[in-house]
Simulated assay, not measured.
Amino acid sequence: MNLREIRSVAREKMKGYCRVCPVCNGVACAGEVPGMGGSLTGSTFKNNVDDLNKVKLRLKTIHNAKDPNLEFEFFDSKLDFPIITAPITGSAFNMGGALTEREYIDSVVNGSLSSGTIAMIGDSADLTMYEDGLNALKKVEGKGVPIIKPRENQAIIENIKKAESINSIAVGVDIDGAGLVTMALKGQPVGPKTVEELKELVSSTNLPFILKGIMTVEEAELAVEIGAKAIVVSNHGGRVLDHAESTAKVLPEISKAVKGKIMILVDGGVRSGVDVFKMLSLGADGVLIGRPIIIGAFGGYEEGVSLILDNMKNELYQTMILTGCKDLASIDSSNISVEW
């Protein structure tokens, strides 16, 4: 199995939901929510990809970074590289249903572990999908992170307790899911949270708490204030708010404000190990991958996911060699130029 074969199989299995375009940039699928596209005009999805493409690397070859160390400390776990699979659900209504939800999430969780990293599992309007994710993590001794939709606090706390019961590495809420069309269509209430509500969630658990969906310095600082241990700079893949800023563009100012106070993760438009390097250079500690993982799962189940991640890991390794970065700590803004 190779990447070309994975993409070919995925294109057939996801027909009508994802075209598996040569460049996954949100143009062909604009407005396809539910589905794989971006909200309304698809502008935010497109911005994520376009702005990341404006970041250029500085080639350096006179150095001693001959065998870079990619290891990433994620709370109490050591990952082989700083890429984590993003929390995505909805095989039936977003991806076409050629894989059952259980087949999809098992492929994601096990394929991630096979490559030396972990997966986040998601929440959905279909309550069984969170349970499928928890069951997949339970089989691997909790090596992953459940991310819960911004429901009423009591419902979130109940799901946090379920995450604790499987000894997950951490737990979180994707607050950027507050306006998801798919949740509204299924009659599942979600919405924004106050600082007091978030403090209640953080204090309800001893697990590290992750707040996903931070796009401003102000809210990054609030995440630190409430006691969150990590944020994900994310606009939900461009699926909730049209004409929003890209994650790449807001990341540097967020990093400048809270780097060292809280772990900074990011997603949005990342399609390669080179893109991962760009996000690290812009100030992230680690990077989440979404749509490419879906292609891997539909194109080759666990093996497909692992192949996608291994390829990104190898691309990141090669990029670090050609920019003179011996480890993750060596990656910073001196390695890039930005055209926006």
Rank of each mutant, 00 (worst) to 15 (best):
98 A>T: 07
122 G>P: 10
204 S>P: 10
246 S>C: 07
138 K>C: 09
290 G>V: 09
21 C>V: 03
227 G>Q: 06
197 E>V: 10
237 G>W: 00
224 V>C: 08
226 I>W: 05
77 S>Q: 15
133 G>Q: 03
28 A>P: 11
230 A>M: 08
102 R>Q: 15
292 P>E: 00
327 D>N: 15
254 I>W: 02
334 S>F: 05
116 G>D: 03
223 A>V: 00
36 M>T: 15
258 V>C: 05
277 F>C: 00
51 D>S: 12
317 Y>L: 11
137 L>Y: 04
60 K>A: 13
322 L>W: 11
249 K>G: 05
127 L>H: 12
257 A>C: 06
194 T>G: 08
211 L>A: 03
307 L>N: 14
22 P>L: 08
132 D>M: 12
145 V>S: 03
102 R>M: 12
222 L>Q: 14
86 A>W: 02
290 G>E: 03
262 I>N: 04
303 E>V: 08
102 R>A: 15
28 A>T: 10
334 S>P: 04
76 D>V: 05
212 K>E: 10
139 K>H: 09
152 E>K: 15
208 P>K: 01
299 G>Q: 05
238 G>C: 01
11 R>E: 13
184 A>C: 10
129 M>S: 11
122 G>V: 07
224 V>D: 03
86 A>N: 09
86 A>D: 09
6 I>F: 01
245 E>H: 13
174 D>P: 11
305 V>M: 02
67 D>E: 15
235 N>K: 06
138 K>R: 14
24 C>T: 02
154 Q>H: 13
286 G>K: 00
4 R>P: 09
8 S>Y: 14
78 K>Q: 11
54 K>Q: 13
80 D>K: 15
209 F>M: 01
19 R>F: 12
233 V>E: 00
266 V>Q: 04
93 F>T: 14
272 S>P: 02
19 R>W: 12
129 M>W: 11
